[in-house]
């Protein structure tokens, strides 16, 4: 038996940068469909803590409360942040934003408009996720449920029951505010891309 001194398993298709043969739509679609499979969680959206308590058996009340508080904390951590109130209101509507003070300055965030939960009867394995909605005529989130990373749920805010993949409940990355750029490399190109509501690509994430 000979021992090879070179890589045995380079997948050439993975290394291609341009198509040798145009791919068939079918091949792409089947990959896409299989990626969409997987388990789904029955989920409900509540806009208040009381809604949750009323809607569930008595033994779920404590979990409703914990999930609500955790969602609120998560909203402060990961929610979209704006430099000015008008930028925030442009996206979320008049009086829909609050000012948050930190020792590095203040910024504006939308209120948590609701929270999505599932598995409430299983106190160790329940899920929660803060949600936002917009009352602004200029926003793609108007009257719809959205997550902190800009993902929008189908249907309008009257829809409260969804079957979602469990990855929907993954914690969103904390939103970052860039103060300056150009501190590495030879060319200094200071650029801050934060703070304008005209961004098309959602909020960081």
């Amino acid at each position: 038996m000979t021992i090879r001194k070179r890589s045995a398993s380079i997948r050439l298709a993975r290394m291609r940068k341009s198509f040798a043969i145009k791919p068939l739509a079918l091949g792409v679609a089947s990959v896409f469909l299989s990626a969409c499979g997987g388990d789904r969680q029955e989920s409900v959206i509540y806009t208040t803590l009381d809604e949750c308590i009323e809607d569930n058996p008595a033994e779920a009340a404590a979990t409703c409360r914990t999930a609500y508080e955790e969602a609120l904390a998560e909203a402060t951590r990961t929610g979209p942040k704006f430099a000015t109130e008008s930028d925030c209101e442009y996206e979320f509507g008049t009086h829909q934003c609050r000012e948050v003070d930190t020792d590095r300055g203040s910024f504006f965030m939308p209120f948590m408009a609701g929270y999505m939960v599932s598995n409430l009867l299983s106190p160790n394995r329940y899920y929660y996720q803060p949600l936002y909605t917009s009352y602004s005529p200029y926003s793609p989130f108007r009257m719809r449920w959205a997550m902190a990373d800009g993902t929008v749920f189908d249907g309008d805010i009257r829809k409260r029951n969804y079957r979602v993949r469990s990855s929907t409940y993954d914690k969103k990355p904390a939103v970052t505010r860039t103060i300056k750029r150009g501190g590495f490399g030879s060319s200094v190109r200071a650029k801050s891309s934060w703070g304008s509501s005209s961004r098309k690509s959602g909020w960081g994430g």
Partner: peptide
Amino acid sequence: EDIGLGIDADDMQVFTDLDDR
């Protein structure tokens, strides 16, 4: 040259990319 310096939601200094990640 595009790497940025920012603060995250926990008020920690972090390096960022052009999407503020």
